[in-house]
């Protein structure tokens, strides 16, 4: 019988799933995903995780619960660093432990360490380690690794062209109205903005209003890098770097009518980066900016009110700019 590896549909799933999937499938391993986020999944996550964790990490726990009885292994790599000289959020380093000690009755966890802080070549070692769980054939592993890298590149290229990760990975249909009068940049971690349940479907809501949406993932690495290089100090969090770089880049563009920063309550990186972004936006431009905070609440009223008011404000401002009185 095929070996089944479970991947929770949460956190960096939105960034690395195509790569992981290609690797496992090339080795003849079946990949099983947890279900899409639902209220019961979130509830399970909240119930079994430590109280101090942020909401996305709690949700990850819920996805593990959803998956654990359907698979032979769980794939929860210990991500320390995914880019040279940078770190990822500290909660990702401890994620395998958090899961192990919070949830009972788990299948074996593949918790290989990924640490590319010093050199990118560590990635090959990490994949080799993962591959060896299933085979001793080094050739096969390295072939699967090549395939994984290739899939990742293809995926990233598609995203940079303006496709949402969920459109590519899940075949989600996103209706874009092309007659949109506004363009809003939605800034936030991949797992906050693309999880439809957690984001209260913000992208669809904006589309419905006839608004074009730009996310940090649409921007090339060079654009991001170029902007963050100008910062007085290196941003050592990979996530923060992309968000900050995106905002800095968007400030130069003339086609952005507003910026929404979507953060989850209890995120240490967002606490700093969102504020840094807000200051930049407010000091250097007059682009409307709004910070929306996600938490466990499922009542959408407050969220929708803020979103509606923000859109109203932008339209009101635009209308005003375009009909300047002829009488001084």
């Amino acid at each position: 019988m095929e070996v089944r590896v479970g991947i929770p549909r949460a956190l960096v799933y939105y960034e690395y799933y195509p790569m992981w999937k290609a690797f496992f499938e090339e080795l003849g391993v079946r990949v099983v995903l947890s279900d899409k986020t639902t209220k019961p999944i979130l509830n399970d996550g909240i119930n079994c995780s430590v109280d101090e964790a942020c909401l996305p990490v709690k949700l990850f726990h819920g996805h593990v619960v959803n998956l654990k009885d359907k698979v032979d292994y769980l794939f929860i790599p210990r991500l320390k660093s995914v880019a040279k000289g940078e770190y990822i959020c500290p909660k990702f380093c401890g994620l395998p432990e958090m899961i192990k000690y919070s949830i009972k009755g788990l299948p074996p966890i593949i918790d290989t360490e990924v640490n590319l802080r010093k050199t990118r070549s560590q990635l090959a070692h990490a994949f080799k380690e993962v591959g060896q769980v299933f085979t001793n054939n080094r050739k096969e592993i390295s072939k699967a690794y090549e395939k994984a890298l290739h899939e990742h590149d293809t995926f990233i290229q598609e995203v940079r062209k303006g496709k949402y990760p969920t459109e590519i990975i899940e075949g989600q249909k996103m209706l874009r109205k092309h007659n949109g009068d506004l363009c809003i940049a939605l800034i936030g971690h991949v797992y906050n903005i693309y999880d439809r349940h957690m984001s209260m479907d913000i992208i669809a809501k904006l589309h419905q209003e006839g608004i074009k949406v730009i996310t940090p993932e649409f921007l090339s690495d060079d654009v991001i890098q170029h902007k963050t290089d100008l910062l007085p100090k290196k941003m050592f969090w990979t996530f923060g770097e992309r968000l900050m770089g995106a905002v800095l880049h968007l400030l130069d563009r003339k086609d952005i009518d507003g910026i929404i920063y979507l953060m989850s309550f209890g995120c240490g990186i967002d606490a700093l980066v969102s504020d840094l972004c807000e200051r930049k936006v407010r000091r250097e431009t007059n682009i409307p900016f709004s910070l929306l905070t996600l938490d466990e609440h499922s009542g959408e009223a407050g969220f929708n009110t803020r979103l509606e008011a923000f859109i109203d404000m932008i339209r009101w401002r635009k209308r005003n700019e375009s009909n300047i009185s002829a009488h001084g």
């Binding site: 309550f265 007059n286 409307p288 900016f289 905070t293 938490d295 609440h297 407050g302 009110t305 803020r306 008011a309 923000f310 109203d312 404000m313 009101w316 401002r317 005003n320």
Partner: peptide, 13 residues
Amino acid sequence: REGIVYDFAMNTV
């Protein structure tokens, strides 16, 4: 500013 909503903030959770 100039008779239109320029910016707003609302308490969070």
